[in-house]
Amino acid sequence: MAETIQLTRKDFVSDQDVRWCPGCGDYAILSSIQKLMPELGVPKEDILFISGIGCSSRFPYYMNTYGFHTVHGRAPAFASGAIVSNPDLSVWLITGDGDGLSIGGNHLLHTLRRNLNMQILLFNNRIYGLTKGQYSPTSKEGTKAKTTPDGSIDHPVCPATFALGSGATFVARTVDTDLKHMSMVFKRAAEHPGAAFVEIFQNCVIFNDKEWEEIEDKKTRPDAALKLEHGEPLVWGSSGNRKGIKMRNGIVSVIELSDDDDPAEKGIRIHDERMPTPGYATILSSLTRPDYPMPIGVLRAVESSVYEDDLIGQIDAAKEQRGEGTLEDLLYSGDTWTVE
C-alpha cells in the first residue's frame, strides 16, 4: 500500500478557468464533486472523468484528475472501454439531457443494462445550452425555444424512468442548489458497485432559467420535493401542509396528513430502494409536478453482477482451464504440416 496523503478539495481543482455562465448550476455541482473527492479515499491518479459534448461536458477540464472530453453522446462507450481496461479506476461520466438522452440514448441504455462500474451524472436543464437554446428531449411539451417558436410537440423522456427501464441497478436524483443532498447522493453513487445513474436538476440561467425553481428554492422545496430515505415513509410538506403517498396495485394516491399523524398508521408507503424488481421505483420516478411531489434521493439501489468483473472472471477461467496461451499455441495449433 502506498502511504496515504490526505488530499483536500484544492487538490482536485485544475488550473483551467471555469467557463460556464455566471450563475449556472454547473458551478455548484463541480464544487460539490471537488469537495467529495478527498472523502472517497481513491488516489487522484485513479480517478477518470469522461464526458460527451455540451455545457456539462466541459466538466473534466476543471477536475485535476484524468479527464477525457470525447464526442457527442458517446461518452458511455469510452467509459466502458476504460473501465474494462482498468477496473481499478473510479470512472465518472458527465453528461446532459441532450448528450445522454438524445444523441447518446442508445449508449446510455446499454451501459446501464451491462452494469459497468461507473458513476453517470446527467445534468438535466431541459434545454440545449451550448448551441444556445433549443429544446431538448427532456423539455416539457409546449416549451418555446429557438427551434420551437410555437411550442414543442415532443413528448419528453424522464431520465430516471429511462434509466430504470434500462435495467440500472442504482438510480438517484438530486438538485444543484442542495449541496448536502448532492454530496450524499454522489457518495452513495460512488459506493455502488456497477453503473450508478444520477439525474441532477440543473439550472441553465441563460436559456431555461427557473425551470426547476420550486425544487431549487429552499423555501418552496419542502412542498415540491419528496426526499427519499430508505426505510422511511413517503412523506413531504412543510408544517401544516404535510402529505404522504399511498400505493396500491400500482395506483398512487396522495393523502393529507396532520403534523402529528403517524404515517404508518395511515398506510403511507415505506420507501424501499432495494426492491428486486424496478416497478416500484419506476412509479416513483414518474411522479411529477404539480399533481405529485418530485421524488429526490435514491430511488433504487440493488446489487447485481458487474460487467468487467464477469469479463475478467471469464478470462481467468479460460487461462485456468486451458493454460495461459503462448505465441506457439496461437500459431502452431491446428492442422500444420512441414515442408522439408
Binding site: 477518470l48 469522461i50 477525457f68 470525447t70 464526442v71 458517446r74 461518452a75 458511455p76 462507450a77 469510452f78 467509459a79 466502458s80 472501454g81 476504460a82 473501465i83 474494462v84 481496461s85 482498468n86 479506476l89 442508445n106 449508449h107 446499454h110
Partner: peptide
C-alpha cells in the same frame, strides 16, 4: 460507433 468508442476508451486507459 460504440465499438470504436470502447476501443479508444481502452487506448486512453493504456
Amino acid at each position: 460507433i460504440a465499438a470504436a468508442g470502447i476501443a479508444v476508451g481502452a487506448s486512453f486507459a493504456g
